[in-house]
Amino acid sequence: MNTDLEVILEAAAKNVFSTMLSFNVEFQKLDGSFFDGGEHVAGTVGITGAFNGMVYLYSSAPFARQMTCSLLGMKDSEIEGNEMVNDAMGELTNMMAGFIKSRLDNAGCRCVMTIPSVIRGRDFKIEPVSGVIRKTIYFQSSGGKVLVEALLKATS
């Protein structure tokens, strides 16, 4: 499952970023902390069923804004406040989670997804409890840095 999950995460990231944003992704090894002191945004969607857990999509706040502009074909000046950015991050995370869920479903592991939510902050850390499969992929895309993380635990 560990190896498979990493492959699924990479495929989900490539699919969502190329289709919705026309961004290429370059997978890299993350050295040190993802956070650099600036504000960050994390979209999150829960998965429950044969596997329980969460999918997270992290980026810096400025890059989340850039992704929102690209998604909606809008200029930065047209993005008002955080609401649109939150909606965009939630939707991109939802699409990632949907991709993962479909792969799990097709492998006979039926799951459902929760609604997306968004976390904002300068430095935060999600820690899994024991027994959870944790997979993280890191990539650069159109000048921004993105981290995708899945925390999953089989229920049976």
Binding site: V16, T19, N94, M95, G98, F99, S102, D105, N106, M113
Partner: peptide, 27 residues
């Protein structure tokens, strides 16, 4: 429009006369 693509779901769409479907993300 769906974020998922399970075989069961697609069969259900066909049964209920859905004309087409798109899996998110879509261009």
């Amino acid at each position: 429009l769906t974020a998922e693509r399970s075989r069961d779901m697609l069969a259900e769409f066909a049964k209920k006369g859905v004309r087409d479907y798109l899996v998110k993300p879509f261009r």
